[in-house]
């Protein structure tokens, strides 16, 4: 990778001796930048590779590499933690959350994008709060309420809890998206004689689809990785992969770290696939931005 310069490098360095001199002057800053980033990535790589190696190693003590190689930790983990059932629950929960949050939040984002009304700030505030308050802080009261209504521990309870951050997330992804669709397009359709239903199905739906796809995938990724809320509200039959993983670590001792690492690798692999799909539709920044302040 070429060094980042304050200005693009000249195409023919020989023709302009001074451009070369300037480039040397810029170098220390560029080197520090690359150094810090490189160090970060090196550590990141170390963290990932150790877990990966450990999950395939038969035993690993004070050496650079494990003593021998094996794949049995994966089959161990699969049967020991009944991963088939856990994965099914995970898929069930994530897709329900994506579907319900889209159905509830897209109409709301449409109204928020198109209308200016008294109390709009209040409604916006209502949607911002679940994003600002950490999940663990509202998860505890929420779990208490769900226990009261005997919903905690079931898939329903987990889905309900995960809707809390998902609905605002869809609202804040979709509102700017709808704002950039020209309202005159709808007006034009009406002037051409389209009725409300036709406008919705023939004009708005195709225009909204890319945004909904992006929002849906983002919610999918976030629900898959949402630990706190699922952890607080799930029971033995409604755990998602990440919660099973955490529980396995916390009740460790009897279990080998290798099979936990194997499960972590499965989790990360799945998440990586999801993210690769997501990155085809959204840019990296959208993955982290919770809202457009």
């Amino acid at each position: 990778m070429s060094a980042v310069l304050d200005r693009p490098a000249t195409a023919a360095p020989g023709t302009d001796p001074d451009a070369g001199r300037r480039r040397i002057a810029i170098k220390p800053g560029a080197w520090i930048t690359w150094g810090v980033l490189g160090f970060f990535f090196l550590n990141l790589l170390g963290v990932i590779v150790t877990v990966l190696l450990n999950s395939f190693g038969s035993s690993w003590f004070r050496s650079w590499l494990p003593g021998g190689w094996t794949g049995h930790w994966y089959s161990d983990a699969w049967s020991e933690f009944s991963l088939g059932q856990v994965l099914w629950t995970t898929v069930e929960v994530t897709f329900l959350v994506v579907l319900i949050s889209l159905v509830l939040a897209v109409p709301a984002s449409y109204a928020l994008a198109r209308r200016d009304f008294p109390g709009k700030k209040l409604v916006m505030g209502l949607f911002v709060l679940p994003i600002l308050v950490p999940p663990i802080a509202y998860g505890i009261p929420l779990a208490t309420v769900l226990y009261k209504f005997h919903l905690a521990g079931s898939v329903t309870g987990v889905v309900l809890a995960n809707l809390v951050p998902s609905i605002p997330f869809v609202v804040f992804t979709m509102t700017p998206f709808i704002e950039q669709i020209d309202p005159k397009i709808e007006a034009a359709a009406r002037m051409c004689g389209a009725r409300t239903w036709t406008v919705l199905s023939r004009i708005l739906a195709p225009l909204l689809l890319p945004g909904m796809l992006a929002a849906g995938i983002l919610v999918l990724v976030r629900t898959f990785g949402m630990f706190e809320l699922t952890f607080l509200t799930s029971g033995p039959t409604s755990q998602t992969l990440i919660v099973t993983l955490f529980s396995a670590v916390n009740s460790a001792g009897i279990r080998s770290t290798q099979s936990i690492d194997a499960m972590a690798v499965i989790y990360t692999g799945t998440m990586a696939v999801l993210l690769l799909i997501a990155l085809r539709f959204v840019n990296p920044t959208q993955l982290v931005a919770r809202s457009t302040d």
Partner: peptide, 9 residues
């Protein structure tokens, strides 16, 4: 990438 790792890994 770190977002894919998850807390446990």
């Amino acid at each position: 990438v770190p977002i894919t790792l998850g807390t446990v890994l």
